[in-house]
Amino acid sequence: SQQIATAKDKYEWLVSRIVKNHNENWLSVSRKMQASPEYQDYVYLEGTQKAKKLFLQHIHRLK
């Protein structure tokens, strides 16, 4: 749906803004993002596993 696509774009923007180093780990980054509406919306719509998967894809691109 359009809502999910929009939430994903915003979440990816948030991840790219916060995660600048491929050594970052999911636990510390997800804690930093918990207060962000972009993170909350995406997790609400798609779940934590998908959020983690996108985070890991971003990390992989930074290597």
Rank of each mutant, 00 (worst) to 15 (best):
S30Y: 08
Q49P: 08
S30R: 11
H58L: 06
I59V: 12
K52L: 01
R61F: 08
S16H: 12
T48I: 13
N23S: 11
E38L: 09
L14V: 01
A5V: 11
K53Y: 10
Y44W: 09
E12S: 06
I4Q: 05
K8C: 05
V29R: 04
T48S: 10
D41A: 12
K52R: 11
I4G: 05
L56D: 15
K8R: 14
I18V: 13
S36H: 15
N23M: 11
F55H: 02
A35H: 14
F55C: 04
Q34E: 15
S28C: 08
K32F: 05
I4Y: 06
K63D: 02
Q2D: 08
E38T: 04
Q3C: 10
I4A: 07
N21A: 05
T48C: 08
T48G: 08
Y11V: 01
Y42S: 01
K50N: 10
T6F: 12
E46T: 03
I18E: 04
Q40W: 13
S30L: 12
A35K: 13
H22A: 14
K8I: 05
E12I: 14
V15R: 02
R61L: 08
S16G: 10
Q34N: 08
V29A: 15
Y42A: 03
K52S: 01
S1P: 09
T48L: 12
T6D: 11
F55L: 00
T6E: 14
I4N: 08
Y39N: 00
N23P: 02
E46Y: 10
Y39K: 02
M33F: 05
W26M: 02
Y44T: 15
I18A: 02
G47R: 06
Q3F: 11
V15Y: 08
M33D: 04
E12Q: 10
I59K: 09
K10Y: 00
E46N: 10
A51V: 00
A5I: 10
R61N: 14
K32T: 09
K53I: 11
K10A: 12
D41M: 09
L14W: 04
V15M: 14
S28N: 15
N21Q: 08
K8S: 06
Y42P: 00
Q57N: 10
S16M: 10
Y44F: 11
V15L: 15
Y39M: 04
D9T: 14
T6G: 08
K32S: 07
L62M: 13
H60F: 07
D9V: 14
H58E: 05
P37K: 15
S28V: 10
L27K: 13
Q3D: 15
H60T: 12
A7H: 07
Q2I: 09
K53F: 10
Y39R: 01
